[in-house]
Nucleic acid binder design. Structure first.
Lengths: 191, 191
DNA sequence: CGGGCATTTGAGCAAGATCAAAATGGGTGG
DNA sequence: CCACCCATTTTGATCTTGCTCAAATGCCCG
């Protein structure tokens, strides 16, 4: 719903809703690189480079605020604190990418899944989006699969297993964590 | 030979030699996140955050220049063009991470290997490190495996296959590309 | 009620892992 | 110059995880 393109200096702030950044392989398969949560930015790379080497799509309806990308260049000259914050944001994304890559490269399906659940939960908790009933989780099986380098069928089996064992409950668009200790133990592959 | 730590605001420039950034999983396996070529920086994340969430190790003897990480903070205030260049460097690393993650998540062993060979070759060509006999390639089989999410044994079989088919020659510490067209065709999984 | 999409499930398959052993192949000290 | 040592590469046999493909089920919404 948002963009799939390559060009432009558009920068957006997501006021509300979820999106994700992804790349397609030559065989059509998709790798989801990161999820964009409410309050985060889309297109920072474009503002810096003039091109985006990935695509962005929405997971839920988005409420976007457009920011003129040329302001980014100016920020470096006139608002150093803004520039520094942008740079930190970039570095935080890079850290998430490093962690996800490590999990995809080193871990089995169960560990990957637990990692994704834990990180999405924690990112939402930091923003106060978690309540006692859990938190939003608007991903379909296929999104989970494409984020973790698995197939939808196998993700489904693995989720069901976690459910059967009483670790998490993932129904429709909500996530509830039932056994935090066990979940973290399984996801510990990160740091 | 360099660092494995977590703290410090040290920033280094690699004058000569190769290094790599990596993370370890709980089971001891290693994911190589990126390679650091001559002329590049180590520890930019540390300079921005005060911590590094990955480790760095050398692949060949390194000649390092230490830079005071506090200068980075100052750069934002006083040398906007330097700050902007640092930010671009960070964004370039992020792009490489996105590409590598996509290949690991979506591609088979042969495609992953070709991708790595192509990207390391091209990065060296940009720096004029390639001659008619090929270019340096100081990675052991295990480094290739850990960068691509494979095992050393399987990397070896795949490299031998590429060699047998006359696509590349990887002996000791040098890489020679014999059939550029075929190699790129196999590596096309990127963009 | 019906169409379309997502989830679920099964059976069979295959790419790559695992484990261990054998073969290289430099580098080094004698 | 040679013999030895250690790391790396190479190879084989076997196994497992996760993939593939397809069918069945369920669900939402018009």
């Amino acid at each position: 719903v948002v963009s799939e393109g390559e060009v432009g200096i558009a920068l957006f702030r997501v006021g509300d809703g979820w999106a994700f950044r992804y790349r397609r392989c030559s065989d059509g398969s998709r790798q989801i690189l990161d999820f964009v949560l409410p309050g985060e930015l889309i297109g920072l790379q474009a503002a810096l480079f003039g091109t985006l080497d990935h695509s962005v799509a929405s997971l839920t309806p988005l409420q976007l605020t457009k920011i003129d990308g040329r302001l980014v260049g100016e920020a470096f000259r006139e608002f150093p604190s803004v520039a520094e914050r942008l740079t930190r944001h970039l570095a935080a994304e890079a850290r998430r990418a490093d962690r996800l890559m490590t999990v995809i490269g080193c871990c089995n399906a169960l560990q990957r899944l637990c990692f994704l659940i834990v990180t999405l939960y924690q990112r939402q908790r930091q923003r106060g989006l978690v309540d006692e009933a859990g938190c939003p989780f608007p991903l379909r099986r296929q999104h989970v699969a494409d984020a973790l380098g698995l197939t939808g069928a196998h993700v489904n089996r693995t989720i069901n297993r976690l459910h059967r064992e009483g670790v998490v409950a993932l129904d429709g668009n909500r996530l509830a964590i039932l056994d935090t200790a066990r979940l973290h133990e399984l996801a510990q592959a990160d740091a």
